[in-house]
Nucleic acid binder design. Structure first.
Lengths: 219, 219, 219, 219
DNA sequence: TATGAATGAGACTTCATTCAT
DNA sequence: GATGAATGAAGTCTCATTCAT
């Protein structure tokens, strides 16, 4: 899930662009001007898996996207599954960054609004490949292994955060229910946007969500 | 998409059970007491793909599920993709049957309610594997081939039907928008139900949808 | 080898057309207006094998070309090899017909000339698929089984006949050698015509052969 | 095409033996005493295809002949066709080597003679499997793909070279025609030699070619 | 650490041949 | 005799993983 987007005063744009850009040769998290291979591999996995799905993605694809020799991948990750787990972890990292960014907004209502606006802002991505995290979860949910469990945890993180916002708005009774509705609606509209290749769906459904949020009484 | 469920006076239960049962050796669509192999293969594909996803499903899996020798599969389908296309077609068939069954209800509101109740009725399936059609679509959406296009068509069929119901309720202005919200909500809650392995999500979110439908003014 | 062609007063055109035409539904060697299935299968084999080569030709290809159900082929021929043998036999039959037709010409020189002219007349076939018999022989020669042996026999038949003509021209000493030169030249020019897809090669090299034949002293 | 043979002062024997020998474990183009795998695979392909034909040759055959695990073949060549293309390229390489060797002879007449003598010198090979290149071309000519086109190019290379020799002998008018006659004759006699399993055919027909070459006036 | 190369299990697919009716 | 369907061996190709250096 590109959990947030450009809507929130551009603050989330970097988070999103990570999902968009391919090999970044000029990052500078290391002396030689590139992120470490481990990071490159994780990011590459997230990106390629987003485009192709887990099963259709080969290690060769990932290695190529990360610009790392295939044989070298195994120095950092013992199996393909560990790479997938790391990619899930990457989604968690982005989610946490998003949450941190949203925390700067004064009210829970504004935070929720910014979240939705971010989603809508990413609609062009959703048109082609759906929700980066949702489509991954959907594929992993068929399985019952570590990657699947980790992915569920990340989903819980988002739901919990959203629940907290609703609670902070005074809706203690149905906070969790509302969180489910919010995130569920996002996942659903992402799927339809992707299936019908129509970005307007995100716009219209996003507006419905904003209206709903605005209409919620404080407590 | 197990498009409908047990909720509607049990009328849809057969439709749903197709997705649940495994090899049926005692069907009777042919003299020897079994459905034709072609049908068996299509149904088997839909079932196994639902459980494992398209890419993780091998022809051997399908052949075994259909109780057909692997080599024989190719007498009926020239490629794995054609099998997937046929499985998508099977989802369409089930959707059309569901729509036909719902047509017997007197008002659009009742039809929409029955649809939602059907979904909720299937929640145990959703808990383990998500929406049979939604998860398939999610996987196929990464592709740009015939199976993907066919799947999109089936999704459109459901959206169009739902749109008609809303229109028949006098909501010409936002009929399509409402259809998107309805189907999107179902897809979203199916995903969350599946991810969190919690059937209650379907119950609670289903109730929200019913409330929403009930609250819609006629025109 | 389309052993002869249109050159010889059109007499050989039928022989050749057999190689060209596809399914002939209006032949009348039987009451129902079609040749027997056995004949159809043999002719179809010769034709498809000519176009595709032995190994690339499947029984399904042959059955389709002969308009015979696949399962039925085995009533007439126990194996694919027997079909190939029969096709070789078909080439022999055509060669014998050609020889019989040529026998009507008064002198051996005229007979040899007619043979060459026939070959040149067939050049458009050779451009696309080479010599019908030569390419078959070339493929079978790698093998050491019955089809290969039969094919060699047919080649011998042609060489023997040509040798007789040269002998009848009084060239007892090198009759066989001349026959080899003649047939070899034909095979070679067919291959080059086919490889370069240039019918003019047949025309030019055919003219050389005619000159050579004309220049041979009687004894 | 074992384009040349032992006739030319033994100079071409190595070229030819490449076609004859099987797995060479004691070559020394690398430190470990074996040629690179890529080379081994190409050579093995040329050899096995020569013996069995393209279609009857499996990757397993090639891998075994090259002493390489089957799965490893695909590290070097992505498809069987690419292996065939490489084998065609190998024939081209041998042809170029032959041409280079022949270039050392002072006159075109001697070069053409040496070519023919080389062919005759290889007759034992031709007896069993025909012309290594001609039989390959014959099979590929039925197709219309890259291997077929490449093979045609190699044939053109030989024809062009031969044409140049005839031209250098002053036969500008019919140089190309003579080249066709020469190469065609070789292909034809190779086929007959192979079909009848008689090496004498090469001797006798080779002698005819030499006589012809000798009899050609300079200009 | 890094890397090209190697490996083998297993996937999809084809097809000659056989079977049941 | 005729036919659709069935069968299984074998072929091509992919890919996660391991190895040797």
């Amino acid at each position: 899930m590109a959990f947030g987007g450009r809507g929130f005063a551009g603050r989330l744009s970097i988070v999103v662009s990570e999902m968009t850009d391919s090999v970044q040769k000029k990052s500078r998290s290391r002396a030689d001007g590139r992120p470490g291979k481990r990071e490159r591999l994780v990011a590459a996995t997230a990106r390629v898996v987003y485009r192709q799905g887990v099963e259709r993605t080969t290690l060769a694809d990932i290695a190529a996207e990360a610009d790392v020799p295939v044989g070298n991948v195994y120095y950092y990750f013992r199996t393909k599954d560990q790479l997938v787990e790391a990619a899930v972890g990457d989604h968690e990292r982005r989610l946490r960054e998003l949450i941190a960014a949203l925390a700067e907004l004064p009210t829970p209502r504004e935070r929720l609004r910014a979240l939705v606006e971010g989603w809508v802002g990413e609609r062009d991505l959703a048109v082609r490949y759906g929700c980066p995290f949702g489509t991954l979860v959907s594929e992993l949910d068929k399985r019952e292994d570590e990657p699947a469990r980790l992915a569920a945890d990340v989903m819980r993180l988002l739901l919990d955060w959203a629940g907290e916002q609703f609670r902070a708005m005074g809706r203690g009774d149905d906070a969790r229910e509302s969180a489910m509705a919010l995130v569920g609606a996002y996942q659903g509209m992402s799927l339809l946007t992707n299936t019908l290749r129509d970005p307007e769906i995100m716009v219209v459904q996003g507006a419905r969500l904003l209206e709903w949020i605005d209409g919620l009484a404080e407590g």
